[in-house]
Deep mutational scan, measured.
Amino acid sequence: MSGNGNAAATAEENSPKMRVIRVGTRKSQLARIQTDSVVATLKASYPGLQFEIIAMSTTGDKILDTALSKIGEKSLFTKELEHALEKNEVDLVVHSLKDLPTVLPPGFTIGAICKRENPHDAVVFHPKFVGKTLETLPEKSVVGTSSLRRAAQLQRKFPHLEFRSIRGNLNTRLRKLDEQQEFSAIILATAGLQRMGWHNRVGQILHPEECMYAVGQGALGVEVRAKDQDILDLVGVLHDPETLLRCIAERAFLRHLEGGCSVPVAVHTAMKDGQLYLTGGVWSLDGSDSIQETMQATIHVPAQHEDGPEDDPQLVGITARNIPRGPQLAAQNLGISLANLLLSKGAKNILDVARQLNDAH
């Protein structure tokens, strides 16, 4: 009898209710805020589980004197976190989706994509230029951005401005803007500013005609071990179906173009009346040469937790077992079709030249 009692006690200790789920994140304040929001949602869904947040620095956090596009290494903000995932030191990792490459290392998958916040870019102005827009900034004003995508589009749109690289986390960039006289304004992701509670610093939100956004911008991705079915089931509740389908289309477009950090590629997606609209573009580094096109596809946005595919093969690095396969494939095909259209119009040449120029500098 006593033996059975011990077995029952052991089973209770090993039951999922007692389990601590370890969540990996970057150390920056924004990353911690984003991770806290994901953990809060998981806690609400699984009140019996405990969650421990483990923060670590990544290569991208450490190399702050070089433009991201020049470092010449993929997975700048993800490699150390993936290493911890691989060694079973954490069970899942919360990322900004735009930091996750469209091809993940073997053994990993994006197990959830959370509801997207505003994906557009924002302009934050130096205190002396508050009330201005990019259009009304004085001639030769210097605007800071760490992104080739932003610089290429904005140089084309605002030729009277000069664009220079600015690195560091959000706090560091804002301090550089406010305390030094080098920059009249800087460009940042609206979602990051909003998550930090800095709505009052948003001086201008850039519309798609001015600057399309990065693939996955404004959404959070939760990376897990691809074979860890328990954790895949656990994080599945975080999937937002519309965000998922938009981001599958965007990531398929980028992957098929073979774009990345070192080339200016941008997108804009919208879901309306059962249609998914995808606009994508590529630019030369100075913005003088560009190709942009829009395509659409009829896609039914499923309700969360309709029964999805059981075999769960990944699409552009994403596993969404609780979302039907048909809409996911339709979104992926839309991204591939748009990429093929741009490639047929000469996108590869623009991107190759951009890559060579970026590598040469």
Results as ranks from 00 to 15, higher is better:
P159E: 09
G131D: 10
P105N: 06
G287W: 03
Q155T: 11
E250P: 02
R173Q: 01
S141R: 10
T109R: 00
G317W: 12
S57W: 10
T294K: 03
K348I: 15
G281N: 00
H126T: 08
M271I: 15
E182D: 06
L334N: 15
K272S: 13
G131N: 09
A219L: 01
H300G: 12
L351R: 07
Q275K: 12
L92T: 08
I350Q: 04
P241L: 01
D99S: 02
F129A: 07
S45R: 11
P159K: 10
E117Q: 08
D91G: 05
H305N: 13
H126A: 11
D230V: 12
K70P: 09
A219Y: 04
T136H: 13
S262F: 00
V202C: 12
D273I: 04
A270Y: 06
G203E: 05
T319P: 04
D311S: 06
L81S: 03
M196P: 01
G48E: 13
L85H: 00
V123G: 07
P159Y: 05
A152T: 14
E162C: 15
R325M: 00
K227Q: 09
T58Q: 04
L232V: 14
A226W: 15
D91K: 12
G346S: 03
P208Q: 10
L97N: 04
E139Y: 12
L334H: 01
L315T: 03
S37N: 14
L315G: 02
D230Q: 15
M271F: 13
K132M: 13
E117A: 07
K176P: 00
K74C: 05
D286C: 08
A214N: 06
D61V: 02
H256S: 11
N358M: 15
L238P: 07
G168I: 00
Q292A: 08
D233K: 10
L245C: 11
H199M: 13
G72S: 13
T133A: 08
G144K: 09
T66L: 09
G131W: 12
M212Q: 03
P327R: 03
A40W: 10
K345T: 15
A270E: 14
G326F: 01
N171M: 11
A122W: 00
F253Q: 00
E52Y: 08
H239L: 05
G216L: 02
G308A: 11
S288F: 09
L64H: 15
A297M: 01
L245P: 01
D91N: 12
K43N: 09
L174P: 00
F51W: 11
P127H: 05
E210T: 08
T58H: 00
A347T: 14
L148Q: 12
K98W: 01
K74E: 02
Q153C: 08
R175A: 11
L220Y: 09
D359H: 13
E250F: 01
Q356N: 15
K43L: 08
D121Y: 03
A40C: 15
N171T: 11
P302Q: 05
R164C: 10
M271L: 11
G111C: 03
K115W: 05
I54Q: 03
E52I: 12
K74P: 06
L134R: 03
N200R: 04
R355C: 00
G326S: 11
Q229H: 11
K132P: 12
E209C: 13
L278N: 02
G168N: 04
T145Y: 00
L92M: 12
T102S: 13
A122L: 05
K227R: 08
T66K: 02
Q229I: 05
L81H: 11
Q50M: 15
I248R: 05
K345L: 10
K98F: 00
G168L: 04
H305K: 03
L104F: 10
A266V: 15
P119G: 05
T172S: 10
L85I: 07
V235G: 04
T298R: 13
